[in-house]
Design a binder for these strands. Structure first.
Lengths: 239, 239
DNA sequence: TGTGTAAAGTTATCGGTGTAAAGATTTGAT
DNA sequence: ATCAAATCTTTACACCGATAACTTTACACA
């Protein structure tokens, strides 16, 4: 690393365009960070290796020293994204340490939707894009599983709180049910499918134009249906 | 049209590459049909105007006589797709004309997932792709609303069958809840998110490797939770 | 029955993209 | 000190969406 510092000391040719090192030193990490930064404001569709390389200050094809192709970069971005989602969900629960299981299910649902809105393009990269099956990396699955485990634990506690069977199968099915509901709602809101569909004509205007209170109340009702459903159906959930 | 037929009679230059007409005559329709055919086997990401034009037998830029750009073509493909989805759902109900409301909710859920699997790339085009807000066409919304209306009617009947309030608000919220659940499950299965997440470790293997019976049973349980939830929460659903 | 205008399709071309191949530079182990 | 491996650059190619200027055809109107 001493040698690396020496490299930084080497002077550049032009004063305007100073390129102190031939070797970037941390290119792979920089590219992933830059990709995540890019997705803060622009969609995955608009992401290109060339602009990424330019922003990092490297030649267009330098990327290929660290990623086999564009797909592999996206794959690795996704792993980061899933980790970020898990941390986001954990943070939401940490803000209310003594929350009951049922309350935690609620908090997770809200947090999930918030993440999808705040990191909209990243969320799309996680759930509206899939690599070919054979290219999926175990690290990515690992990162993804964490999120669901958090939900699963909340569900199990909720089942216990209500004196319901909380063995593997009912816990799995209830988790999947809750996740599907929240994920579906999130996607439908994000893609604008709800506008003009369910509520157009039934409400005064589009869903996104409703007051936050109205949106909040609808969300609460959906989760009420979900939780009441789990309570009512739990004893029927046998493999 | 007589003149058009005359045009077809004009001989071509080479015998291998015969181009009988300068004017295609039905290009817009052909392009949309070809795009839908393309999505039968390949993803939206891989769809290009150039290959579309080539398949239809027309120059690369002829597309621009009928579509402002690639986005507009996709927009119109989506309108077709939503119509196809509505028809698919209607057809599923037509096969069981005397089904109860609750039964129809079930049938719609199954049909929705089947459509998403059979027309996977088209489904992605409908729900994982969105044009800029200002480019949305009313025809597309119209076509999309039809599907939800079918579900909404089933839900209303189901509410009536159970002596529950079936006015606008509870019907809307229940519809949204059911749609979200089915849509979320569909997306999670399609993107492979479920593999390795909820069931990895809790079941013997990945979800898609489960027997159809097992998958069916899980689906049934999810819908049981949903329907029981609506029944249990219906009286709480006030605006 | 011409005839001219607008619609429909073509060719040429531009900037941008992913990526393969070959060369230049740096690093680090021997 | 040297040399191979890793890293980055240069060059090049095929493909893509899109624009502009053109040719061809269709059709309304005289």
């Amino acid at each position: 690393m001493v040698l690396q510092q020496q490299a930084y000391l080497m002077s550049s040719n032009t004063p305007t365009e100073r390129k102190s090192t031939y070797h970037h030193g941390n290119l792979r990490e920089s590219l992933l960070a830059e990709a995540l930064a890019f997705l803060e404001s622009e969609s995955l569709e608009g992401l290109s290796l060339r602009t990424l390389a330019k922003r990092v200050g490297v030649s267009p094809t330098a990327v290929y020293s660290h990623f086999a192709d564009k797909v592999e970069l996206i794959i690795d971005v996704r792993t980061r994204g899933f980790t970020m989602l898990s941390e986001y969900l954990s943070a939401a629960l940490a803000r209310e340490p003594d929350a009951s299981g049922e309350r935690r299910v609620y908090l997770l649902g809200i947090a999930y939707m918030h993440f999808a809105q705040e990191k909209s393009n990243l969320f799309d990269t996680l759930f509206s894009w899939t690599p070919d099956f054979e290219r999926i990396k175990p690290e990515c699955i690992e990162a993804g599983v964490d999120s669901v485990e958090i939900l699963r634990e909340a569900i199990i506690d909720m089942l216990h709180e209500n004196g319901l069977p909380a063995t593997d199968y009912p816990a799995s099915v209830s988790s999947l049910s809750s996740w599907s509901l929240i994920h579906g709602l999130t996607m439908l809101v994000k893609t604008g499918s709800i506008e003009g569909a369910v509520f157009c004509g039934h409400w005064s205007s589009d869903f996104s134009e409703q007051s936050p209170e109205t949106q909040q109340r609808v969300f609460d009702h959906l989760l009420t249906i979900e939780i009441e459903g789990i309570k009512a159906a739990a004893h029927k959930l046998t493999p």
